[in-house]
Design a binder for these strands. Structure first.
Lengths: 152, 152, 152
DNA sequence: GGCGTTCTAGAATATTCGTAG
DNA sequence: GCTACGAATATTCTAGAACGC
């Protein structure tokens, strides 16, 4: 009964994280979480950068990184506990962002329904609204046993 | 019974906005609101920029601009509605931020207790907590008649 | 009880219709309704603008004219009955939109709270939501007798 | 208890899509 | 065909909650 809306946030996120074109957003080492370099992402995807162009083809209408974070939370993503959020000079190599901006914020988010190589899980990424959350509480959600990434 | 803690947020904000050293934060034209250029502020004050130094002498522990926004809201600042806030290439002149970063976010916040040339009003800038807000509701706020900036 | 309408759309509309910069949106002859030339509006306000700039300073995030119509309806505007919605060759003179597209859609909308020279009425322009409409029905709104533009 | 920082959520408006009338 | 509106998502601004100092 569920299909993936290609226009909605999960599909856009999936597209970005799997595209080699966007170095600012990628999988973490285990493919179970999302890594985003804030300032490069703003330039590269949201189009606020030096190029001044529209960024990633107008994938998002916003130019605010906070709006991306709000979307992640609305879809149930959580921040990975701060083990290693240090931002050294070259976490992604010298890279294309390199010269004037040696440091930036590295964000690490995850969702049990967002894993590398598992596009079939995307249909479980639901936008959480007050109404839906009320329903979820009422139904107690039998089908949503927390699932690791590599199972099925 | 109220005094201004020189270590607290209002004092730091006052220092920044009145210092010619920090071009990324300044008064608006009428001296009744605060203008902050996000990306330059992050570099200049929070120390996340090309310089890679500690920014404004460790005035803030955070390097996140969102934390500054949270503080502004906790102290009762509100965002000025976007009238026509185009932020073209040089709202601050070619400026020191110049070459590769043509656009950035311009934030406009205000508080009735934060006005240019009125340091005496700063003592009214109180951090709003749940407890204090409850008290305010209970007391029905007799003393807070809306006050313009230049009065007294 | 409302001093200034914090809702953005009415303010933006007011700005546009009163600005000589935007020829595609203007008052009708009696100042009681809004005239919008669709294609020129899309180019001038929603689009990139002829100068390749951001159009109207990113006033709207949408590029769809239908979204503007949706907003008009949400704020209670109605289409003027189709007496004269014909689109002659030069309703605005030869005009700057001129050569290849001599005809376009002319939209005529009105609201009792949107009249030329009456910015004081703007506070009555409320966004209509299901909840608010329910309240309005409940209160039966004694004060909202349909009012002509030149009254008071 | 207060304050600063961080992460998440609430609430209102904005945008899009579909469809009843 | 056209107009208005419901509903879902998107964006923005503000606030709640938890934790450390």
């Amino acid at each position: 009964p569920d299909s993936l809306n290609p226009e909605a946030f999960p599909a856009k996120l999936w597209l970005l994280v799997n595209s080699p074109r966007f170095g600012s957003i990628r999988w973490d080492a285990r493919g179970q979480g999302l890594l985003i370099d804030e300032q490069p992402f703003v330039s590269e995807v949201l189009g606020m950068g030096p190029a001044g162009d529209g960024g990633a083809g107008g994938l998002f209408k916003t130019k605010s990184f906070t709006s991306i974070i709000r979307q992640l939370n609305l879809y149930g993503f959580r921040k990975v506990v701060k083990e290693l959020v240090v931002v050294p000079r070259s976490s992604a190599g010298p890279g294309p962002y390199g010269d004037g901006s040696p440091t930036w914020y590295l964000h690490h988010y995850y969702s049990p329904h967002f894993c590398r190589g598992r596009p079939d899980l995307l249909v479980h990424l639901k936008r959480l609204t007050s109404a839906k959350k009320a329903k979820l509480v009422a139904n107690l959600e039998l089908t949503s046993r927390p699932s690791g990434c590599s199972q099925q």
